[in-house]
Computed example of a mutant assay.
Amino acid sequence: MNVTLIIGIIFAALAGLLHFLIAYMEMFAWEGPLARKTFGGSAEEARPFTFYAYNQGLYNGFLAVEAIAGVIIALVGMKTIGVTLMIAATASMLCAAIGLVAKDSSFKSAAMKQGTLPLLGLLFIIIGLTL
């Protein structure tokens, strides 16, 4: 594997880890201090949305698993399968970030946090594949 592809794999892994954290907050710590600091509002304001946050957390968790599985699979030698999983995961993460800011531009900061690592992963992986 070339250096550019390895950099892409590192960014895909970081994107997966970030989405694991987001999934944890949405699924298990929705009313907790980290989730409230991250997403805003008080625990009381968040409480009515617990079910929806949990469901959203499942999506983020699955994307995280897909990205991390792709990293592991690529690193153990099944590059095509691993890279395919990483591309699917990071592209989905990036599209979610774009969709967030497209729906409401006041979420620009959140979209940047959510989408930067997947974007870098996707770019470096694609460039690394062409070298």
Rank of each mutant, 00 (worst) to 15 (best):
residue 9 I to K: 03
residue 49 F to E: 04
residue 50 T to M: 14
residue 113 K to T: 15
residue 98 I to W: 00
residue 5 L to P: 00
residue 21 L to Q: 07
residue 115 G to D: 03
residue 17 L to S: 04
residue 131 L to N: 12
residue 20 F to A: 09
residue 8 G to A: 06
residue 1 M to F: 13
residue 128 G to D: 11
residue 4 T to S: 14
residue 108 K to Q: 12
residue 102 A to V: 11
residue 13 A to P: 01
residue 74 A to R: 01
residue 53 A to V: 08
residue 84 T to D: 08
residue 42 S to P: 05
residue 53 A to Q: 07
residue 94 L to Y: 03
residue 32 G to A: 14
residue 82 G to I: 00
residue 37 K to Y: 12
residue 98 I to M: 07
residue 70 G to S: 07
residue 103 K to I: 14
residue 38 T to Y: 10
residue 76 V to I: 12
residue 13 A to K: 04
residue 4 T to V: 15
residue 125 I to N: 03
residue 20 F to P: 00
residue 26 E to D: 07
residue 29 A to E: 06
residue 72 I to L: 15
residue 121 G to W: 00
residue 113 K to Y: 11
residue 105 S to K: 10
residue 67 A to Y: 02
residue 28 F to V: 06
residue 61 G to C: 11
residue 25 M to E: 00
residue 46 A to P: 05
residue 6 I to C: 08
residue 116 T to N: 10
residue 44 E to H: 09
residue 71 V to N: 03
residue 81 I to M: 11
residue 76 V to G: 04
residue 34 L to S: 14
residue 127 I to L: 14
residue 35 A to K: 01
residue 115 G to A: 08
residue 77 G to H: 11
residue 2 N to F: 05
residue 37 K to E: 09
residue 123 L to R: 03
residue 113 K to N: 09
residue 120 L to R: 08
residue 64 A to N: 02
residue 91 A to T: 14
residue 128 G to V: 15
residue 8 G to V: 03
residue 34 L to W: 13
residue 76 V to A: 10
residue 34 L to K: 14
residue 88 A to M: 09
residue 29 A to H: 04
residue 117 L to E: 03
residue 34 L to I: 11
residue 62 F to V: 09
residue 116 T to R: 07
residue 121 G to M: 06
residue 29 A to F: 02
residue 8 G to Q: 02
residue 106 S to I: 13
residue 85 L to M: 13
residue 13 A to D: 06
residue 127 I to N: 02
residue 24 Y to F: 08
residue 80 T to C: 07
residue 104 D to E: 11
residue 61 G to Y: 05
residue 1 M to C: 14
residue 74 A to P: 03
residue 124 F to V: 05
residue 36 R to M: 07
residue 43 A to T: 13
residue 64 A to D: 02
residue 6 I to K: 09
residue 108 K to G: 12
residue 66 E to H: 04
residue 29 A to S: 10
residue 17 L to E: 01
residue 41 G to P: 03
residue 8 G to N: 01
residue 121 G to E: 02
residue 128 G to C: 14
residue 74 A to T: 07
residue 93 M to I: 12
residue 110 A to I: 09
residue 31 E to L: 10
residue 11 F to L: 08
residue 10 I to C: 12
residue 61 G to Q: 04
residue 34 L to D: 13
residue 12 A to Q: 01
residue 81 I to Q: 08
residue 31 E to I: 09
residue 90 T to S: 10
residue 62 F to Q: 05
residue 78 M to W: 09
residue 26 E to T: 05
